[in-house]
Design a protein around this nucleic acid. Sequence first.
DNA 1: CAGTCCATGGCCGGTACCGGCCACCTCTTC
DNA 2: GAAGAGGTGGCCGGTACCGGCCATGGACTG
Lengths: 328, 328
Amino acid sequence: MLDTLGLDATSEQVYRGMLVMPGAGVAVLAEYLGLTEAEVRRGLDALSELALVSPGLDGRTRAVSPEIGLEMLMSRQQAELAARQKRLEESRVAAAQLMAEYADQRSVSGNLGGEQLVGLEEIRHRLTRLTREVREEVMAFSPDGAQTEENMAAARPLDRELLGRGVRMRTVYLDSVRNSAPSTAYAQWLTDLGGQVRTVAALPTRLIIVDRATAVIPVNSEDSAARAVVLTGQGMLTALCALFEHVWAGARPLGVAAPGRDEHGLTGQESATVRLLAEGRTDDAIAKRLGVSQRTARRIATALMERLGARSRFEAGVLAVRAGWLPQ
Amino acid sequence: MLDTLGLDATSEQVYRGMLVMPGAGVAVLAEYLGLTEAEVRRGLDALSELALVSPGLDGRTRAVSPEIGLEMLMSRQQAELAARQKRLEESRVAAAQLMAEYADQRSVSGNLGGEQLVGLEEIRHRLTRLTREVREEVMAFSPDGAQTEENMAAARPLDRELLGRGVRMRTVYLDSVRNSAPSTAYAQWLTDLGGQVRTVAALPTRLIIVDRATAVIPVNSEDSAARAVVLTGQGMLTALCALFEHVWAGARPLGVAAPGRDEHGLTGQESATVRLLAEGRTDDAIAKRLGVSQRTARRIATALMERLGARSRFEAGVLAVRAGWLPQ
DNA sequence: CAGTCCATGGCCGGTACCGGCCACCTCTTC
DNA sequence: GAAGAGGTGGCCGGTACCGGCCATGGACTG
């Protein structure tokens, strides 16, 4: 995943190994990861290039926590300016995705600049305040749509007020909300008022960005009610905005019919499923990402395996790569 | 697997599809396999090149049963002679492996030239007769070693007689027999009498070839006692001999210590496990192939997944390909 | 020789995957 | 509007995978 940051698979492995075993030496890491010491050293070199590791007080090399490393990385790339705009853009998207993923571990690796919100009450309160104070723009990923009809009813007055004030609202839902009549009705209502709504097969995380200055992400994507972080770091915000724009550009407006199949004959949900499976997600986690039931997620996976002619998940992974459904 | 025969993955998929759904048209196959009709047609062209499909009486194209198709293929390659000796050798090995694999389905796809033996008694009787009449040479794969000590005791007189007559005996056991003291003792005894014994991490099937003229393979590799075929077709025998020589060349004589690890840091058992996982085998089937317990097979698989940093079997398959542990 | 290490394999409870069945809903077709 | 097809989701029993625990036995060490 970090390849767009210029990290090869081995270096990423070394990085993850160092996060798991802080302070481990080259020999231990090599043993643990099943790599040669030379490979580990090459990995360390690549990592120090990107400021993801640094020498500690005791002389040992240590992994920098993902958030801090990424924040530094972002600022540096910022400084390098737009000579390689495309590549920079890609890096930001990758970094933000990593960020969102590692949010789960924030409790372990310590807090960065951002402020933590604990409990549904606190989160809801902060979100209300933030959205009331919006000046320009709201961007949001809503993996679970508006959830209940009460939520929608509660949201309508605020939506109406913001859109009335001329705030630009862009929301990305999951394709699966199209299965629910109330959700589509709400989305349609938003559109009619001037909000922009698109859908996509899978979303990386729940996310709200206000005026490109403040972002709120749940710490644990499984239980978005428990804990969230408010991010205001400039590098991070740039990355998250890039991530949003990236997803937005690939998302499909409400009225537009589902495109048929991609170059491999896969639907959007199918290719998202392949990607998530390749990241090691369980069927259950995939179901949550796609906003469908476990049963349907398994049905998609089964269909993919049949298509590949695979008799086991392992073989399916192998064949998916060979079929070109996944990079490399 | 059929790539050394000049078949790409798509063609193989089409072939398997045609075996499953005899008489299906291009459109149905394309639908079933998730391919375009053009791809299916390209596959059919490649298959007819290799005489693996032929027009039936009703004008529809049909898949030829694997054994017959392969027997034809073998004879044809025989005729083409040794200009491309290496490639031909590889094809034979691949074909024999396919043959051994498809032996399981022989009951469905009908009997070819070979004669069927039903029941342990009949098989044992035939084997005794065959081995008594050996003139030159016996080649054998014995995945389960000599099994019990009674078997070994029973085999010794015959072994002694044949070796005394100057018959060349080459047997390939599994590496795992080295875990059993009686088995290694027996193998050592055989070696002392002039028999040749080697071991290998995994064996494709149980197999006995007598004088390069007659081969016996169990129909169902899971239950080698139930049913076996006696093969005498010349093309098939050539292929099976090539398969034996191929495995023999890669096998390790009794006295030789286990080589460390290959270029990817994998032991013999590990790389065999990767290969078998990629073929879609269950852990249980792999255990049988390696001659180890299910627990140990799972342990090997788990170790591989840790090494790859994979969180699911699917991801492991993907990463194994990316790590170069598997072709392409 | 006793002590230690390590690979193996049996056992068991837990989780993940698998697919049949049926009910519900939507969209199409007549 | 009735009938059918297709997508979805809940339920359930079955299989595959997972890892902790412990006993065994061979190899190495002191």
